[in-house]
């Protein structure tokens, strides 16, 4: 399963960013291979960043999102795409993934 995390840096040591759609990077972590890829997030619009970020999750086949709390438009898009969102604030990427696996993250 693939998990997308909104992060400050493109690494597993990065903190989960305190914003979702305007986070500097997205890390896409594959739980079956334990490998990850990262996507730099081009923040270039005044509006519509939420759906744009959700589209990145959809296009990368993520089933789960770990980030700060997504906004209204993003939540609607996530719901429509069947992606569950979890609150990963305060954790490193690696910690957040572990906590998610153990069922310790709160749903956003």
């Amino acid at each position: 399963m693939k998990i997308m995390l909104a992060t400050n840096e493109p690494s597993l040591e990065s903190q989960v960013a305190d914003r979702f759609a305007r986070a500097p990077y997205f890390v896409i972590y594959d739980t079956s291979t334990e490998k990850f890829e990262s996507v730099e997030n081009a923040v270039d619009m005044a509006h519509g960043m939420g759906p744009k970020a959700v589209q990145i999750a959809i296009d990368n086949g993520a089933e789960v999102l770990i980030s700060a709390l997504p906004g209204g438009n993003a939540m609607e898009a996530l719901k429509s795409a069947g992606i569950s969102a979890y609150d990963g604030r305060g954790f490193k990427v690696s910690e957040a993934v572990e906590k998610f696996k153990n069922g310790e993250l709160k749903k956003a």
Binding site: M45, H47, G48, M49, G50, P51, K52, V54, Q55, I58, A77, S80, A81, G82, I83
Partner: peptide, 9 residues
């Protein structure tokens, strides 16, 4: 403007 969101479903 990201006004359309498309997922497989």
């Amino acid at each position: 403007f990201s006004a359309i969101s498309v997922s497989p479903k």
